[in-house]
Every structure is written in C-alpha cells, then in structure tokens.
Design a protein around this nucleic acid. Structure first.
Ligand SMILES: [Mn+2]
Ligand SMILES: [Mn+2]
Ligand SMILES: [Zn+2]
Ligand SMILES: [Zn+2]
Lengths: 144, 144
DNA sequence: GCTATAATTAGGAATCATTCCGAATAAAAC
DNA sequence: GTTTTATTCGGAATGATTCCTAATTATAGC
C-alpha cells in the first residue's frame, strides 16, 4: 500500500462515517500515511508539532482511537513499549526488532483462510495480526 | 500441546536455567499448564489463592516475567485489557473474541518460513505471534 | 458569507496494569 | 544445620492511556 492511496482511503473513510476533517486530523493522517516506521502516539505528536504549532496528546489519542474503530488504521500493542500505529490495514507480517524497536513490513498471506476457521470453530474472523520478533540486520551485525 | 507435557517442559526449563522451584512457582506452573483460557496475571493470582493460602501479585508478575524471558511461556498483550499468558509456546493461531475476551487455539503453521524472511531482509526471527480477532460462536449467536 | 449546533480540542487530572523497592523468607548447596 | 543467594511480599512509584470539562471550530442550512 502506497502513501497517497492510504491517505485517500483514510480521508474517504472519515467522510463516509461523518467524521470531521480538522487541521489536527489531517496532520495525523499525513504522518500515518507517510511514515513507514509504525509511529507511536507521542512520535506522532512530536512530528505534528513540527508543522502545526499546536496539537495535544489527548487529541492524538482520540483521533487514533476513532480511526482505529472505523477500521482505517491498525494499532499494535507491546508489553514493554507504547502502542504503534500503521495505515496499511491489509494483511501483512510485521517484523518487530527486539533490539532497536524498528518495525518492518513483509508481504504475506493469512496462514489459514477465515472460512476454514469459521467452519471448524464457529469463530468469525474480522481482522488479523501477524508478527515475527527477532533482530534486524543492523542490530544483528552491530551487536545488539 | 498437552497439560502434562507443558508442565514438565516448564519445570525442566526452570531447572536448566538454575531457577528455584518454590511453592508459589509450582502453583503458577500448574495453573498455566492446566488452563486453556490464557489467563491474566490477576486471574492466575485468584486461582493460586484458592489453593496456596498466600501468594502476592508481585510474585505472580515476577514469575511470569522470568518464565517469559526463559522462553517457557508466551505473553499476549492487548490495548483494552491486561496481558494473557499461555504455556503452549508452539506456533499456533489465537482466536481472540472481541465480544467476551475468550481466546481459543487453532493449529496453523507460520505463514512464511523464517529462513525466507532472513534471506530477503536480514531479519532473524526467534518468535512469532498470530492472532485473528472476531466473534466466537457464542457471542455471534447470543447477540454480541 | 453568516449562524447555529454538535463534534472536536486542549490540557490537566484520574486510572490502572505493571514495575520497582527494601526488608523478610526460604530453596539449594555444602 | 549453616550459609548463601534468589525469591517473596506489600506498598509505593511509574507511565501510557483514558477521562473530564470548558473553549473552539467544522459543517450544514440559511
Ligand atoms: Mn506494518
Ligand atoms: Mn494459545
Ligand atoms: Zn534492530
Ligand atoms: Zn465471545
């Protein structure tokens, strides 16, 4: 998924749900769509404050929350760090480096079709999360 | 993975790492191995207090932490609830019900072999997490 | 463009799972 | 049994996230 596509999709989704497109929200959408780094709420706040002079952490959290509930972005939570957010809601593998915290994307299909799961268990799938944990190239070579 | 096998594996692992097997730890291991519910720290505390009269939440967290670091159990974190723990460290899909919080297991392989990921990206995988979110049979029929 | 109104924002307080601390205890080795 | 050192406990501290309320502003309708 590419930057402009993500941005358009989120904005369209907001309009469809009747959510207002404020200065702050457009800023956040821009950052989420442009960043490949899977930024945290406070990273988004910091980036946003470089451009728009003022925006609060509450607003960042509130905005991420409604976008998440609308299915327009994904949140990834971790035990030892704060949550990270991404605009690519398609199924893919996130490679999470336990050394430096970097998150890379890796294209991959679901391990089992949702239909098969539902048929066997009655569980109806509506979203998925796939992660591999380990060390990225830099951390491995650098000596993390 | 079956209860007795999980229990033995954790106890052996503790011994190998030179970790003491205390009354409290054996209790926690018993609960983790016996429960299919993927219990939280406080659920484990509650269960443990039904049997051993005394054990503290600090101890439960401390014990879960060392077992996790030793690779003997897995922790699953969520945004809206506390972490859940499981003794089955083999790769499998966790079906997380967003209605009632129940977590079921579903046997499935990794979507991509670790070697392929490493070859393409330099990222060395050492553990994985796969989840499908949705509604379990009961929540779907009941009206969640 | 102007107005009305309901959603959004800011920022400070509150929450709550988890971690930290220091003294008391107990498992394991000898 | 004694010694050593990890473990336990309960309470305090932490910190990401949520909650609260008054002020602001995007949008719709005129
Ligand atoms: Mn990603
Ligand atoms: Mn499981
Ligand atoms: Zn790294
Ligand atoms: Zn359910």
């Amino acid at each position: 998924m590419e930057e402009q596509e993500i941005k358009r999709r989120i904005i369209e989704g907001m309009k469809e749900k009747g959510l207002k497109l404020t200065r702050q929200r457009l800023e956040i959408i821009d950052i989420i769509a442009g960043e490949k780094s899977h930024p945290s709420a406070s990273a988004i706040l910091a980036k946003a404050r470089n451009r728009a002079p003022m925006i609060s952490l509450s607003t960042v959290y509130y905005t991420l929350d409604i976008m998440k509930k609308a299915g327009l972005i994904k949140e990834l939570e971790f035990n030892d760090r704060d949550s990270r957010y991404e605009g690519d809601v398609s199924d893919h593998l996130n490679l999470v480096c336990t050394g430096c915290g970097k998150i890379e994307d890796f294209r991959a299909p679901r391990p089992v079709p949702s239909e098969k799961v539902e048929k066997k268990t009655g569980f109806r799938v509506d979203s998925a999360r796939f992660e591999y944990y380990g060390l990225c190239r830099e951390c491995r070579l650098g000596g993390g």
